[in-house]
Write a protein that binds this DNA or RNA. Structure first.
Length: 584
DNA sequence: GCCGTTTTCGGCCCGACTGTTTTCAGTCG
């Protein structure tokens, strides 16, 4: 049996934490397990080696007891402590945690007193009145549980960033228009540009809270009001996502924005820095800590998030970086990267037209790119094997190339279309066109569109072989994942990154909101190895060139600078970049 | 269960809101 992976250990720790919670264990003991799971999530070293060499305890948050349990689980493939714990509870009980408003105490009561062992049993108990009769429960609680059950069945609680962005930005814009509103921002994982978000957090600064809260809960996009208080309201929007509003004073605004932007781990690190200075940092203010043993320095005046970071001895940290993945140390040492911005992009590659499966013509795509202010546009329709996408055979492809060359002559050097293709990587890693055809193109995006179920070794070898072709300029949507609908195929990402560095192959950052592939967590490694990216919308319609915005957010999460992104290069320089590989 | 300029015991973030209560427990973020 293969030793358990880091991911399996993280899952184990989270499961134990939940079980201990149900048991009513000490909350700090419960938290120790989730803390350890989080610590491992951000652990970048060789996990297997750390386990066998007994160095896991060096990870902050993993002590002697957990090191022993993890080592046993990894080497023996099972942990009796966990198995025993699990047998104490019916398996269906865990899905109850996914219901809004139910925590360990209530779930325990429902199980022990009403024999509720899953969501269906809970629904029945709510409907026949047994839940309402329980001590600590009532009619309202029973009703709310039914609503939560309904909501879970309908929405499952996760939303792609790109699917909620329009609704979120519109609501924010409308809040900003209110006369009472002094400042307003989205916070939370949305502001950090996570690829999948679970709710929307709005922070508003005002002297007059009531009209703002009233506007929010009464908005036409609100389906249900979940809570409404003086400073905090929650609603479910018609799109299904939950939205929370926090109303604060202008003085509290910087702290509130920082606090609710998170991530939680980032905040904890900031708070400990404050404590070390004899201050306390919460969602309202940075102030003197009454319990401090040291005599605190005077607290500087705070008017912005930047002031807060400065007070803690840190450079300003962009929201996308606030994941406790090294940004605090970098901010302390003035080593934060200057992140790429949308304005830096001068063009883009990987776009489709009506020639394959796009819905806009070549001319329409070019006009749209020009309107966006781009200087160049790469066209890469599907290759012949992508039959379902009307992939181009050699004849149609070369005809498109000729059309593009002809159009370019009319731009007078002000704009340029690059003739490319999105070439299928076949099952064995060979390409869909012979080299002498690829050589006639300005660039090639090579992507996997079939045979997703190969083993990790086969898939990795397949990608490596494709990258070894001198005409493959960049690797398209490397993992093949479709967020919230299709898992990534098995591939050894570090091996692909190494090969990309060696062969000078660009790895695309596919900005389509359903993909956002390669995942942002891998970009720091790619950057370290010297791998460049191209932020590509994978546009199938003129409107989808806007996906670039989404892609820049992910690039920023991946710590990428303009110099890491080839499509920040202007016309005149980008040509040389595209031919780096084939001329070396 | 973890951790240590509060250092081997005794803390561990904490405030807002709801619903069920008559002063607070549970949940959430």
């Amino acid at each position: 049996m293969a030793p358990k992976s880091k991911e399996e250990v993280i899952e184990l720790l989270e499961s134990i934490s939940r079980l201990l919670e149900l048991k009513g264990e000490n909350v700090f003991k419960v938290r120790a397990y989730t803390n350890a799971a989080r610590a491992l999530e951000t652990f970048t070293g060789d996990f297997a080696a750390a386990v066998t060499e007994g160095r896991l305890g060096e990870v902050a948050g993993v002590g002697a007891a957990l090191q022993e349990k993890i080592t046993e689980f990894v080497s023996a493939g099972a942990l009796p402590y966990y198995e025993k714990l699990r047998e104490e509870f019916p398996p269906g009980l865990f899905e109850l945690f996914e219901l809004q408003g139910l925590g360990p105490k209530k779930i325990k009561a429902l199980w022990e007193q009403l024999d509720v062992i899953n969501i269906d049993a809970l629904e029945a108990a709510c409907k026949d009145g047994r839940v309402a009769e329980l001590k600590g429960f009532g009619e309202k609680t029973a009703g709310n549980i039914l609503v939560s059950i309904q909501a879970r069945r309908q929405y499952a609680g996760a939303f792609r960033f790109g699917d909620v962005a329009a609704e979120a930005e519109t609501l924010l814009h409308e809040l900003k228009q209110l006369p009472e509103v002094l400042h307003a921002s989205l916070a939370g994982s949305y502001r950090r540009r996570k690829e999948v978000v679970h709710d929307l957090d709005f922070i508003v600064a005002t002297r007059d809270a009531e009209p703002v809260s009233g506007f929010f809960v009464g908005h036409s996009n609100v389906e249900t009001v979940l809570a409404k208080g003086a400073t905090k309201s929650s609603v479910r929007l018609v799109g299904g996502i939950q939205a929370d509003l926090r109303v604060v004073t202008p003085e509290e605004y910087p702290s509130a924005l920082l606090y609710f932007t998170g991530s939680k781990e980032h905040n904890i690190a900031l708070r400990s820095r404050a404590l070390a200075r004899g201050w306390t940092l919460n969602e309202y203010r940075l102030g003197p800590d009454d319990k401090a043993k040291i005599k605190p320095d005077p607290v500087p005046s705070i008017r912005s998030e930047k002031d807060l970071y400065a007070a803690l001895g840190l450079d300003y940290i962009e929201p996308e970086l606030r994941e406790d993945r090294g940004e605090i140390t970098a901010a302390e040492g003035h080593r934060l990267p200057h992140l790429v911005e949308l304005e830096n992009l001068r063009g883009t590659f990987h776009n489709h037209t009506t020639e394959s499966d796009g819905r806009s013509s070549l001319k329409e795509m070019v006009s749209a790119a020009q309107e966006l202010g781009l200087d160049y546009l790469g066209i890469s329709d599907h290759s012949v094997s992508s039959f379902q996408a009307h992939g181009l055979d050699v004849g149609r492809l070369l005809k498109q190339v000729a059309t593009i060359r002809e159009m370019n002559e009319r731009f007078d050097g002000e704009f340029k279309i690059f003739a490319g293709v999105e070439c299928d990587i076949l099952k064995d890693g060979t390409l869909d066109y012979p080299d002498d055809v690829l050589a006639q193109l300005d660039y090639v995006v090579a992507s996997v569109h079939a045979s997703f179920t190969q083993s990790q070794a086969e898939m990795t070898a397949r990608l490596l072989r494709a990258m070894s072709n001198p005409y493959v300029t960049m690797l398209g949507h490397m993992s093949g994942r479709l967020l919230l609908s299709r898992e990534a195929y098995a591939v050894d990402v570090p091996a692909v990154i190494d090969a990309a560095a060696q062969t000078k192959t660009v790895i695309e950052l596919n900005a389509n909101p359903r993909r956002l592939d390669m995942d942002w967590r891998w970009w720091p490694l790619a950057k370290e190895k010297g791998v460049l990216t191209s932020i590509n919308p994978d546009a199938h319609h003129v409107s989808q060139l806007q996906y670039l915005w989404n892609g820049v957010g992910i690039a920023r999460k991946g710590w990428l600078r303009p110099s890491d992104v080839i499509n920040t290069l202007p016309l005149g320089k980008i040509e040389a970049q595209l031919s780096v590989k084939r001329s070396s």
